[in-house]
Design a protein around this nucleic acid. Structure first.
Lengths: 231, 231
DNA sequence: CGTCGCAAATTGGTTGGACCAACGGATACA
DNA sequence: TGTATCCGTTGGTCCAACCAATTTGCGACG
C-alpha cells in the first residue's frame, strides 16, 4: 500500500509540521533548498509536495519572497466543482444555466405534485418573505428566500431534484465565499422585484399551474443572474 | 497578482481538456513526456500540474502504467445514488424524470449552440444508427445510440450538462447490471420507433429548432421509460 | 542625519537530462 | 496450450544549472 511514496512521506511531515505549530499561520517556512536538505530529498520532490499542499489551500507561494502558511479557514469544503468554478469563470455560467433548468423543473413538479400541506408551507414562507421585506430585514429576507426555494424543491417530490438543488447551491455558495460576496446591496427596487417574482411563482405553484410555475421560476433565475452579472 | 504561472497555464489547459471531454473518465491521458512536448514545457512542469490535479482527486497515477482520469466529478454525485436506486426502486423514477429534464435541456442547447462540426457528427452517428438498424446489429445499435446522446450532450456546450449526463447514465447502467433487467431484445417494432425518434431529434437539432429538439427528446425519453416500465 | 536608488543576495520558477522501478504486452519455452 | 521471461514504455526521483521576482543592504546624495 505504501509503495514508493517519497513525496507522500515529505507531504506527511510537512502536514504534521503545520499542525503542531512548527510553522504558524501566515509564517514563512524555510526555502525549498533548505527543506530539501533538511528532509534529505531532492528539491524537486519538495516542490511537488508543496504544490500538492498549495492545491489544497494550505500554502501560498510568492515568487522571490517565499512560501507562506495560509489560514485554511475557507478550505474546509472544496469540492472539485467549486475549484473548477473559481478557475474557469465560464463554468459558472454553465452552473447557473443548469440551475435555471433545474429550478424550473422543480417549480413545474411542485405545482403538479405538491400536496396541500406543502403548498401551505410555501405560502407561509412567502408571507415571511413579505414580512421581512416590510421590516427591511435583509438577513431574514435571505433566509426566507433560501427556505422557500428548498420548500419548492421538496414539494417537487423528486429526491434527485432535491439533492442536486442542494449541490448547486453549495457550489455557488462556495464560489461566493471564495471570491468575496458581491451579492449584497439589495436596494428597494431589486428587493421589490424579487418579492413580486416570488409571489408569481408561489401563486402558479399553489394554483397548480405547472407551465406557469416553470416560466415564472426561470424568469426569476434569469433576473438573479442578470443582477449578478451587472455587479 | 498575475504571476507568471506557467504551471497554472498547463493546469488550466488540462482542466479544460477534462471538462470538455477530451479525456473521458477512466481514460489514460498521454505520457508525461508526450504532454511535455505537446504543451512545449518541461516534464517537471507537467508533473507539478499533474500533482495538483491528483491532489484534488481528478487524476490517479499508476507507476509504470500511466495517469488516468478519475471519475471524481461524477462519482461525487453518483456514488450514493447507485445504492439508493437499488434499495428504493421508487428513486429510479426520480432519476428517469431528471434524465428527461436533463436530456431535454441538452437537446435544446445543442440546437441553439452546437456548431456545424458537432451537428455533422450528430448526423454521422444517426447514419450509423440507421445502418446498424438495416444490418440488425443490436450491439452496434446500442453503441451508436449511446454515442449519439453523448454527442448531443457535447454539442450543448455546457460542462455541467455533459458530466451530469454521464452521471445519470452511470447510475442507470449500474442499476441495469445489478438487476439484470436489461433493455431486453429489441423487436423490430420498438427499434423502428426509436430510430424514427432519433431522426426527429437530429433533424430538430441540426435545423436549429431548440424547442422542437427538446420536445422530440423528451418524447423519446418518455417512450424509453414506457418500454422499461412495461417489462 | 535621513532617504533615495541601485545592485547583490535570496528565493521561487523552469529547464533538460539522467537513472531507477513498476507495469504490460510480446516472445520464447515447456 | 499454458507459463515464464524479456523488454519497451511509463511514472518516480534526483541533479545541476539558469531565469525571474523579491528582499536586503550599502552607498551616494540632499
Amino acid at each position: 500500500m505504501k509503495t514508493s511514496g517519497l513525496v507522500e512521506e515529505v507531504l506527511r511531515k510537512l502536514e504534521t509540521a503545520l499542525l503542531d505549530g512548527t510553522y504558524p499561520a501566515n509564517a514563512r517556512l524555510p526555502s525549498e533548498r533548505a527543506l530539501a536538505e533538511l528532509y534529505e530529498v531532492s528539491r524537486n520532490t519538495i516542490r511537488e509536495a508543496l504544490q500538492r499542499l498549495g492545491a489544497r489551500g494550505l500554502l501560498r507561494s510568492k515568487h522571490g519572497a517565499g512560501v507562506f502558511v495560509s489560514d485554511q479557514l475557507r478550505t474546509s469544503t472544496a469540492s472539485p466543482w467549486g475549484q473548477l468554478v473559481t478557475d474557469h469563470p465560464a463554468v459558472l455560467g454553465d452552473v447557473l444555466e443548469f440551475r435555471r433548468v433545474l429550478e424550473g423543473a422543480t417549480a413545474y413538479y411542485a405545482a403538479l405534485r405538491g400536496n396541500d400541506e406543502e403548498h401551505g408551507l410555501i405560502r407561509d414562507l412567502l408571507s415571511g418573505l413579505e414580512q421581512a421585506r416590510i421590516d427591511n430585514d435583509q438577513a431574514a429576507e435571505a433566509s426566507a428566500d433560501a427556505r422557500l426555494h428548498e420548500a419548492i424543491a421538496l414539494a417537487s417530490h423528486n429526491s434527485m431534484f432535491l439533492h442536486l438543488h442542494a449541490s448547486v447551491l453549495g457550489i455557488l455558495r462556495e464560489h461566493i465565499t471564495l471570491n468575496g460576496s458581491s451579492l449584497r446591496a439589495l436596494d428597494a427596487e431589486v428587493s421589490g422585484q424579487l418579492l413580486q417574482q416570488h409571489r408569481a411563482i408561489c401563486q402558479a405553484i399553489c394554483g397548480r399551474r405547472p407551465e406557469a410555475a416553470r416560466t415564472a421560476m426561470q424568469a426569476h433565475i434569469d433576473y438573479v443572474v442578470s443582477r449578478i452579472e451587472s455587479a
